[in-house]
Design a binder for these strands. Sequence first.
DNA 1: TTGTAGGCGTTATCAA
DNA 2: TTGATAACGCCTACAA
Lengths: 345, 345
Amino acid sequence: MQNRNVTIHHIAARLNLSASTVSRALNDYYRISKATRELVKTTAAEMNYKPNQLATSLRKGKGNMIGVIIPRLDRHFFSHAIAGMETITSPTDYNILICQTNEDYESEKQSIIALAKNRVDGIIISVSTGTKQYDHIQSIINEGIPVVMFDRIAPVLNVDKVLNDNYTGAYEVTTHLIDQGYRKIVHFSGPQHLNVYSERLAGYKKAMSDNGLDVNEEMIFNDVLTRAKGEEAANTMVSSGNLPDAIFSASDFSALGALLAFRQNNIAVPNKIGVAGYANEPFTELTEPGITSLEQFGGEIGKSAARLLIERIENGAKDEVMQTITFRPRLIIRSSTSKKGIMEK
Amino acid sequence: MQNRNVTIHHIAARLNLSASTVSRALNDYYRISKATRELVKTTAAEMNYKPNQLATSLRKGKGNMIGVIIPRLDRHFFSHAIAGMETITSPTDYNILICQTNEDYESEKQSIIALAKNRVDGIIISVSTGTKQYDHIQSIINEGIPVVMFDRIAPVLNVDKVLNDNYTGAYEVTTHLIDQGYRKIVHFSGPQHLNVYSERLAGYKKAMSDNGLDVNEEMIFNDVLTRAKGEEAANTMVSSGNLPDAIFSASDFSALGALLAFRQNNIAVPNKIGVAGYANEPFTELTEPGITSLEQFGGEIGKSAARLLIERIENGAKDEVMQTITFRPRLIIRSSTSKKGIMEK
DNA sequence: TTGTAGGCGTTATCAA
DNA sequence: TTGATAACGCCTACAA
């Protein structure tokens, strides 16, 4: 254990220079003799000097830190979004501070406070299921901290946004189901205060009505997003003897649950019933049959969010006009809906 | 946009107090009048004061920040490890700064430097595949920053460690394969400089020799960890006509690749050939047949790592004796190895 | 080209 | 119980 704290003063003392000269040399300040600069730099390296980012940030009023708040790390979409953000930030001086809320509002609120205390330069957020009000987010916006929302957003907030086109995705998959000959198609949905679920529901309804198919309330299952809930819902259908032609689930997990339940009850997918999910979780490709789903390009969305935020941080809110970037998901057709025998290759 | 920067001085001015009194009131310093304390606190809340963590950290020489460096976020084991760490830190004042290396040594080095600059109080790390030397880690240890390694560790470093018992896990699954009647069992392995792969290889070899079975070099496949590599290896076996009885892969992904390749070639798993993986990725349960694997309890390992680190941060390195905590993985037997018909329930 | 001085927001020490 | 002062490490006018 040698030197937890080498400062510019130590370097200055060693070289009989002032701390400011050292600082300038290290930061390639424009008027400094080449000799001094090199001397300082090699000495700093020798002494294993590491600038104290805390002090720099305090002094500059800017920490080169971006806070990211997401519901869960272990989701295909979110983990790829983070990877995307990192590809943007890693060539820069920005670091990313990740907070996971586990879908809990209180945790989300605490994360925001923690990020604010740490004086992050900006925040990228996708809200949790438990979040039904946005005061905590509005509050940091009011403090002048740039915010970019992605995927699960709050329409009322005036911030930059990066979205998935859930409406179109849902419309496409529903249309696909209809094309395959399914008529009575039910929908597994989630909390309607989250845009992603209300938009998917709307896209589903529109596709149905555009094709002259009725949708009644009994065809819409709320809060069926997990594997367990999907299984439960499917089992209920089976035991009631009232099977629909197909299920379009807003979640791959509940689609999986339903698929497994049908398999256990010897109900053939896709021939007897079709099953489609959303988000293209890795497992959708591996089940038997594979589950039709929508790929959301998390990586691209993460990149866009990071770019927007950095732009906003560096150019200030000069430009009060906020942007919304929307990505169109891609329908991935697999066997679980291929009644006509159009199989995935 | 109101007040990006309310400081204790603003509060002090408003109340005709000194900044130190405000500071003491906010921090529940023991000798302060109840009246002032309450007054200060309500005023601070009114003014939407948020302590500047940067300043506090600089002053205290401690940032309440823990750095976590992992190869990838999108792995079952690592995402659960992080969730485990968060359950430990979230009731405390510690925040977690996550860095993903994407298995790249340079990125790992940069992450460590960034964390050091940000004066994290300690670092939890699992090294990347690309890491073959540990100077960068030794260097921060030398600076007195507590380090805890987990899963993929460097045996030479004198730090606290939290491990998976890869040797026993590999021994158990190999023994299981032998019990099922498989004799010629090959092994898909990874870079031997990573403890996890060399230990799994060792456990495999020991189980084989304990059962009087030979292992020659041709039975050990190096660098077969991805789905693509697994498929490739399996296809080579098929086309050469030289099939083993079973494959024990150190990675679920290459096990998956092999499984799919066999399926495509109409080679029956588990009857013609058995397949087992490692890490119990979610998909192992969902393939047809399900893939036998080893669950590693990432959550518990993350918790232990976080506990050890916080302990070390707060009690200093007073106690120079380092701990190693080892978790025994659990063998999850699924259909891909159940030749005898002992199916998963 | 380099040095001096002051301050970023906080807390700890000393004095009142 | 409270206030004045200095310092954490760095950067940046201003001065030399």
